[in-house]
Nucleic acid binder design. Structure first.
Lengths: 223, 223, 223, 223
DNA sequence: TATGAATGAGTCTTCATTCAT
DNA sequence: CATGAATGAAGACTCATTCAT
């Protein structure tokens, strides 16, 4: 167990977090895909620490040596998996933007589509996301990338909402950031513990209501 | 001679998750406290997995044997730490209720006090809370206790808000549950990554605004 | 990160008492053999409890990891060793039967050959056998196997003796069982403490005499 | 676990195997008795290795410190227990001799009484005897004492049998030694595994028959 | 390139024994 | 004398990673 802490002492091979090579061979592509799929399954089933690389290799139907041919260490597997998730999220974001621009709608509908998209994004493998995000010691690079993605998303949301007439909130960028984080966080929670006696539909409705009320109200914070 | 009774067969020592004994001696109390403090520091610094019991004992200035005299296993340390956090949260909740009842205020102020309380609660050791909550394999008992606490909190919030005249939202209990989760989640996030260019003050203000708008708006969800 | 799956919960790895794999590679066969030889030596020298797996690995000239590649736990080493002994005993038994059938002899000679075979069987590593049999917590499977082997042996002995004309004892099966146990027990004792001022030859002679007298006398137990 | 091998390195206090003192106080006598009783129970229930001194002290209702006041180490407990067993056996032997001399009987009855006595001796706590004898690393002194006792017993048996008219065996001393060992060994086995579908009565009868036949036959070993 | 046997540092945990009170 | 908290050496076992074939 114990995740073999990266041991700063042990000389870290350069570029430890990158794929070792990108051999364009088909076999390789397939292999990488197989390994990643296996890693997802194994991490989801056992958690990050208990998800041993040997088990992953076995499940992928390759030898442990082959696994290490493409991934320099265990962490790299998690990173690759998370990067895909990130990319997926950004694609969805782009879709959302496109849809919003193509067929403009009111604030409510706009938020609704956004929330549903996020729910879909996390619906897939909530436990895996959780494990990757919380149990895994991620390199700062990844962490930063996630924060940046969130910030970018906030900016996009702000831009889109700015065009809505019933948005009265000031400092839209800040508000959007809070909104994005809220959706992220609640969406994760919901995906992880859906047992709370709250249907997905009801959850989405309620969340949209909160965001809508937030953006529609003005910000003269009497404090 | 060991005979090493096969792990699986050996009956899980009774009360594995409790302190072993509660010897009322002074030295003991101090020792337990020292160990717990050390555990908090070590977990915070290295994470749960890498926070080895030996390191904890060393940091606490006691032998590993002493540590195991009071805690039957590593998990028990995390559980003890988390139980304290839980108790602390409930105490704060009670304080908040008392304050709200003693000197009633408007919706805005009420929410503000609540959010500030939560922020304080998590301000202490955000990373530790995170590690305990996410990286640690908690026994179901603890997990359930946390969910129950959240549900209870939601009920209390609902009860308190029901008395506010400007609350127009229907299904207050459900809404409160969402609100509690939102505050929990965002508050954790903020405590964990305060680097977002958002002062604590601003963050609290914004969050209060969102909740206020949510509760003050009515729920006829045009969907 | 370890997450250290709580021992008790972790499913006893399948086939805990079997070799992990039987990779047919040459190196492996040698390695297994080396480990087993080392285990025999170490157990014999230190006893089961004090015979640590690390010591065994060291003596075998392999790393502790390699040892555990082939044997899931310490017990498995003892079991493997004992199974060999059992198999050896059964082979000898078969040889004895073959010899008895091939060139029939009188009662005395028959018993003599039997006793000598048993003495040979235990002559090898008496202390090891003793340790394996008495100090080691064997799985029920093995224990049962040994009892069954003893019972089988008794049956075979009974069958063989039934053909001897000078055998007058009734209830031959019961008597054979007692005889087998006697030989087993005394043979162990003699092998373990040969210092009793009794040569092996004398011991065998005496034991044969006892058994011969027993079988040759009739059983009308005046009690 | 692991019996903390006596560690030759650790400076062994002189007289490690004796009681520390023999304070004639009543309290002490009772305490010693309690501890020994507890030790017997704990060893019987858990085996020697798993029978921890702390558990013994707890069961005896004294502190671990007190236990060590009277017994210098764990081994001393086993030794004390075994010495009692030995003394008990010698007492029985003496009784047997007395009975044999007081009211002389034939060979069969004499042997019968002997065997029954041995069975009684081991009937008490067969598992405990087994544990003490086999699982416990005994000091040579004890081991020698046991061998000596056996040799003495053999001599006594020889002396007694010499007076029986139907004893025709030569070298009575040697034969007696074998007989004593046989009874010892089989009696142990029977006490340990009485499940063999052989009543105690039948077992005793059979064993007596074997011994009787042995002693009654003459020894001109045609080999 | 693929393989998989081998590695060994590192983990949790136990328990005989001591010694200050 | 009794106590029991403290000690810490030692053991079984895991798993990320390497490297010879």
């Amino acid at each position: 167990m114990s995740t073999r802490i990266p041991k700063a002492a042990r000389p870290r091979r350069a570029g430890a977090l990158e794929l070792r090579k990108q051999p364009a061979q088909q076999r390789s592509r397939t292999t990488i895909e197989d390994v990643l799929t296996a890693a997802a399954q194994v991490f989801e089933a056992h958690g990050y620490a208990a998800g041993t690389t040997n088990r992953i290799a076995e499940r992928a139907g390759v030898s442990i040596g082959t696994l290490y041919q493409y991934f320099p260490n265990k962490e790299a597997l998690a990173v690759a998996l998370l990067e895909r998730h990130l990319a997926d999220g950004m694609r969805r974001m782009a879709d959302w933007v496109a849809r919003c621009v193509a067929e403009p709608r009111g604030l409510h509908a706009t938020l609704h589509v956004f929330v549903e998209g996020m729910l879909d994004l996390h619906a897939g493998r909530p436990r895996l996301q959780h494990i990757l995000l919380e149990e895994t010691p991620l390199p700062p690079r990844l962490h930063d990338a996630m924060l940046r993605a969130e910030r970018d998303a906030a900016k996009i949301v702000a831009g889109l909402l700015r065009m809505q007439p019933d948005v009265r909130r000031k400092n839209l960028e800040q508000a959007s950031h809070l909104a994005v984080q809220t959706v992220e966080a609640l969406t994760h929670r919901f995906a992880a513990h859906p047992d709370q006696g709250l249907s997905r539909r009801a959850f989405a409705t309620e969340l949209v209501a909160m965001l809508e009320a937030y953006f529609a109200s003005d910000a003269d914070c009497r404090e």
